[in-house]
Measured scan of single mutants.
Amino acid sequence: MTVRVDGVDYEFSSLEEAVRFALKMAKSKGAEVQLHNGTFHVE
Rank of each mutant, 00 (worst) to 15 (best):
F12P: 00
K24V: 09
L15D: 02
E11K: 14
M25K: 02
D6M: 08
S28G: 10
A31S: 08
E16F: 12
V3D: 00
R4E: 02
A26C: 14
G30T: 06
A18N: 00
Q34I: 14
T2A: 04
A26K: 05
E17F: 03
G38T: 05
L23V: 08
G38P: 08
N37C: 15
M1W: 15
K29Q: 10
R4P: 00
E17D: 10
F21P: 00
R20I: 09
S13Q: 09
T39P: 08
V33A: 05
D9Q: 06
V19C: 15
A18E: 00
T39C: 15
R20W: 09
S28A: 13
S14Y: 02
T39Y: 12
T39E: 10
S14W: 03
V42N: 07
E16N: 06
D9T: 12
M1V: 12
G38R: 04
S14D: 06
F21R: 01
F12M: 01
G7M: 03
V3I: 05
Q34T: 14
R4W: 08
A18P: 00
L35M: 11
F40T: 09
T39I: 15
L23P: 00
K27R: 11
V42Y: 06
D9R: 08
V3Y: 04
E16G: 07
G7T: 02
Q34K: 13
G38I: 10
S28H: 12
H36Y: 11
M25P: 00
S13I: 07
L35D: 03
L35K: 04
R4I: 06
K27S: 12
L23E: 04
V5W: 05
F12N: 00
V33K: 02
E32R: 14
S14T: 12
H36I: 15
M1F: 15
V8E: 05
S13E: 09
Q34Y: 15
L23H: 08
E11L: 13
K24G: 05
A26S: 06
S28C: 15
N37R: 05
T2P: 01
E32N: 13
R20P: 00
V42C: 15
L23C: 15
E16C: 15
Q34E: 08
H36P: 04
G7L: 02
D9V: 11
F21K: 00
A26I: 08
H41C: 15
G7D: 04
K27E: 13
V8I: 11
N37E: 09
E16K: 10
K24T: 11
K24P: 00
E16Q: 10
A31K: 08
R4Y: 04
M1S: 05
S28T: 11
S13D: 11
A22E: 01
F40L: 15
M25Y: 05
H41I: 14
S14V: 04
M1N: 06
L15K: 08
V5D: 01
N37D: 12
F40R: 07
K27Y: 13
V3T: 01
M25A: 05
F40K: 08
V33G: 03
A22G: 01
D9E: 09
V19H: 09
V42M: 05
E17N: 03
A26M: 10
T2K: 12
M1K: 06
A31Q: 06
D6H: 05
E11Y: 14
H41K: 06
V42F: 07
G38L: 10
E11F: 14
G38H: 09
E32L: 13
H36D: 05
S14F: 02
K27H: 12
A31E: 05
N37S: 04
V3R: 00
F21Y: 04
T2I: 11
T2D: 01
V8T: 06
K29M: 14
G7H: 03
K29T: 12
V33I: 11
E32H: 13
T39A: 12
F21A: 01
K29P: 10
V42E: 08
Q34F: 15
M25E: 03
A22S: 02
T2N: 05
K29E: 09
A31D: 04
F12S: 00
E17W: 03
A18G: 02
A26Q: 04
V5P: 01
F12Y: 01
V42G: 08
H36L: 13
H41T: 08
G30V: 05
V19T: 06
V3L: 02
E32A: 11
Y10K: 01
D6A: 06
V3H: 01
V8F: 06
L23W: 11
F21H: 01
N37Y: 09
E32S: 14
K29W: 12
F12V: 01
A31H: 09
F21M: 01
A26L: 09
V5N: 01
H36V: 13
V8P: 00
